[in-house]
């Protein structure tokens, strides 16, 4: 087993950039690029540490939400719209416990695309169904999911970037 972890390596790479590379850079372009590189290396480290669990939870929540959207359309008698959402759910890649971060990202991307298209369709029904409590409820569920997902992103971005100096 290689006991030096990926995040250990990222920390020592960053320290080396600071102690050995940065002092040798004379021009603004190089120093600016190095500042960005350091922030992004830190972002990679935080994502390695936290993103897997976050994506697994988010992908599961997205699947539940899309299922609820399909159910909403069925209840409203719109079987064609329900079938579109169901098909998107079925064709999205499915990850198991051995999935890599890249695989989880592909699954998340497919599910978010499905949500985007399904929401666009729902928005097109707003003039007709905007006063319907069931319509309002599914829209509220979507908004709640969007907020949770963006707030969760903050758990990756904040520790990686905030308070760590110029990005460029």
């Amino acid at each position: 087993m290689i006991t030096v972890s990926a995040t250990d390596l990222l920390r020592v790479i960053d320290a080396t950039l600071v102690s050995k590379v940065e002092p040798s850079l004379g021009d603004v372009n190089g120093r600016s690029a190095l500042a960005t590189v350091r922030h992004l290396l830190n972002f990679v480290r935080v994502r390695i540490e936290r993103e897997g669990a976050m994506l697994i939870a988010d992908d599961a929540a997205l699947r539940r939400l899309l299922g609820q959207m399909a159910e909403y359309h069925r209840s409203a008698g719109d079987s064609e719209a329900a079938a579109v959402v169901t098909a998107a759910l079925e064709t999205a890649p499915t990850c198991d416990a051995t999935a890599s971060l890249d695989d989880l990202t592909l699954e998340a991307r497919a599910l978010r695309e499905a949500l985007h298209l399904a929401l666009a369709r729902l928005q097109g029904l707003r003039a007709e169904r905007g006063d319907d409590p069931a319509y309002q409820a599914i829209r509220a569920q979507i908004r709640a999911h969007i907020v949770r997902e963006i707030e969760a992103e903050g758990e990756l971005v904040g520790p990686a970037f905030f308070g760590r100096g110029p990005r460029r």
Binding site: T36, H39, R143, V157, F161
Partner: peptide
């Protein structure tokens, strides 16, 4: 490298601003 940064942190900050503007966070 700045495109990679723009594609990550900048997008997040703006998304956060959008949900705040709508009074959701």
């Amino acid at each position: 490298i700045r495109q990679a940064w723009t594609g990550t942190e900048v997008g997040y900050i703006c998304r956060r601003g959008l949900i705040a503007a709508m009074g959701l966070s």
